[in-house]
């Protein structure tokens, strides 16, 4: 069975999320920061009256800041606990993948990226990293990078 992925770019890597998990893609919005939250929480935004927590995926994956500038995009995901937005550099196309092109992660991929991806699809022009949504979000609550309050010590 071929699968459709909504793709996005993060630090020149191509990532994908199963299309059916994506609620919508919207432009960057002003956020209200949650100062005491872990670094990877970008803030809260108002999505038509609903309050959505936005996750800075670069920070979550331990990737460097986006030097190219430009505002990130919101990929809004539906979870059982309500909507969550993922901040990404750019949105790609919807890609259809074939199961036989799937492989586990190459050894070269390390760190948080490894924790938050399930594997890659080999596409014609490169690799599509499949985002492991569960691990990505759970990681924020459990380990989630250092909360900013650490400075308080």
């Amino acid at each position: 069975m071929s699968k459709q992925f909504c793709t996005f770019v993060l630090d020149r890597l191509l990532f994908g999320i199963e299309v059916e998990k994506v609620q919508e893609v919207i432009r960057y919005q002003e956020m209200t920061p949650v100062l005491t939250a872990p670094d990877s929480i970008a803030g809260l935004m108002n999505l038509r009256g609903q309050i959505v927590t936005a996750v800075d995926l670069r920070r979550r994956m331990g990737l460097p800041k986006n030097e190219e500038g430009g505002l990130p995009m919101n990929v809004v995901i539906c979870t059982s606990e309500g909507a969550v937005s993922l901040l990404v550099d750019r949105i790609g196309e919807v890609v259809e993948t074939e199961p036989e092109t799937f492989e586990s992660l190459p050894d070269s991929v390390r760190g948080e990226v490894r924790q938050t991806t399930t594997g890659v699809y080999k596409l014609e022009h490169g690799l599509l990293h499949v985002l492991n949504l569960g691990a990505t979000l759970d990681g924020i609550v459990t380990s989630g990078g250092s909360p900013r309050t650490m400075a308080a010590a």
Binding site: V34, L44, I51, T53, V84, L137, I140
Partner: peptide, 16 residues
Amino acid sequence: LGNLLKEQKCFAGATI
């Protein structure tokens, strides 16, 4: 607040 912010004891919720 969403699940991701459950641990934030300083906040009781949010409003628009």
